[in-house]
Write a protein that binds this DNA or RNA. Structure first.
Lengths: 194, 194
DNA sequence: GACAAGTATAGAACAATGTTCTACAGTTGT
DNA sequence: ACAACTGTAGAACATTGTTCTATACTTGTC
């Protein structure tokens, strides 16, 4: 409910809108993601979304960038034990997706009407992939992934993790124990690459 | 362009609408999927989509069912060599997705506004999964997947295949040789499960 | 403290969408 | 030939993204 008398300070509008947008995606999925709904939840005028972002697509772009920055951070481990780092990365991949359904939906699942990430935003996605490639590369010095290009192994791992969590988010993951089956996925990949 | 003078026979409307809907999804993705666009492409009045289907959601439901029936058929192999059958199934999984982008999008990727498959339609999806579980089960008699429940192994395989092709359809698969990297994914899983 | 500039707001307005309703006219079965 | 069926066009409505305008609140400056 927008309060007619009060007025949100400029510097709060950006964060408030993004938080509201993220919450709506988390709670209702893409269906509830409308200009008016976001503005109402952020306690802000619908116009604010055009003054502070480039409309709905601008909000999506901002969420995309925020998402990949958080994602990159969540996936990065450098403890010195590269095999363990990679395992942690894979586990963190799923945790991030489950804890940030909305962001993950924007980043990897739903095609929002008329939205296409900018070049810079797309590069952020590529950078995240590169992090995974680097992590695989460090493992190669220990003998793991000896017979494959790091980029190919990274693509395989990413695909498997993404597939598992995206089916989970869609509600069509039939595993009895989802944590355990994700572990099975990871150990199967590790053994398969040996 | 709807031709004012002519009138489409009743029995052609259903198939024509579904074909047009599939083509629009293949060509333009979810963005172009509107009642008016479908009707125009099918050379049919917009009203036909309400008389013959339950609106847009009815068309999606029909595509979902059509998709899973074709998918189930494409994935089924029983040559007697169960290990080879499973490999063929996995290869066919990707081929189906690439050749039926629109159907695959409806089935596994995009959340269309207000659409939820019926119970019967959801059971079709579960039945497809069951086919994969059965295929894995037959392999267990040869010693493959000896240490895991067939349903868990099936979930792992499905996840990996889905992840690979959905990233591919989204345009964020970075593999240099996509066919070869899909093969790498499959052999890695096979070796990992041994 | 007062004023001017900046900017958040409400509300109207437009196009595109899903959907419903109605009058009309082509098609088909008897 | 006629009646029942049903596909069609078109208007109409609610909801959506978007733009525009007038108003009024805030803030920086004197």
């Amino acid at each position: 409910m927008t309060n007619r008398a009060t007025r949100t300070p400029s510097e709060r509008i950006g964060p408030d809108v993004l938080t509201a947008a993220r919450e709506i995606l988390d709670d209702e999925g893409p269906d509830g993601f409308t200009v008016r709904a976001i503005a109402q939840r952020a306690n802000v005028a619908p116009m604010a979304i055009y003054n502070h972002f480039d409309g709905v697509n601008g909000v999506l772009e901002a969420l995309w960038i925020e998402g990949f920055e958080k994602f990159l951070d969540a996936l990065t481990f450098e403890t010195g034990d590269s095999d363990d780092d990679l395992l942690r990365t894979a586990v963190a991949y799923r945790s991030f997706a489950l804890e940030n359904r909305g962001l993950y939906t924007v980043m990897f699942m739903h095609r929002f009407r008329g939205f296409q990430p900018s070049i810079a935003a797309a590069q952020l996605a590529a950078q995240t992939y590169q992090t995974l490639v680097d992590s695989v590369g460090r493992c190669q010095q220990n003998g793991l992934f000896a017979n494959t290009a790091a980029s190919d192994a990274a693509q395989v791992i990413w695909s498997a993790c993404h597939g598992y969590v995206s089916l989970e988010l869609l509600g069509i993951n039939f595993a009895a124990d989802r944590d355990a089956t994700y572990q099975l996925l990871l150990t199967t990949l590790r053994d398969g690459f040996r």
